[in-house]
């Protein structure tokens, strides 16, 4: 039963990583690509962490996984901001439909 939920969560996580990568390839400019990377990959990682935490041998091992997720979340949001700000300061114009 636990294995089943793990597989479900890991597959769902992989789907979000796939969608994030598709967005990275399909979206037209830097800003829209950052949207795909920060949001889709964070959810993908969160689902994978949840799937792996179910398999963890101890509570502290599961805690370590959650800690990793939190740090990646923080780093992802901060780095996305820095890249977007850098582009804005250099005058990179957003793509318009």
């Amino acid at each position: 039963m636990i294995d089943f939920f793990s597989i479900l969560l890991l597959l769902a996580g992989a789907l979000f990583f796939l969608a994030g990568t598709v967005g990275l390839l399909r979206f037209p400019d830097l800003y829209t690509r950052l949207h795909a990377l920060t949001k889709a990959d964070n959810v993908g990682l969160g689902l994978m962490i949840a799937g792996l935490a179910l398999q963890a041998e101890s509570l502290s091992a599961a805690g370590k996984l959650v800690l990793i997720w939190g740090l990646v979340l923080l780093a992802g949001a901060s780095v996305a901001y820095l890249i977007a700000r850098g582009a804005l300061l250099r005058g990179v114009l957003p793509w318009k439909r």
Partner: peptide, 14 residues
């Protein structure tokens, strides 16, 4: 909201 954000952008990309 972060899950909603991920779902939203994934849907638009796909």
């Amino acid at each position: 909201h972060s899950i909603l954000g991920g779902v939203d952008v994934a849907r638009r990309a796909l």
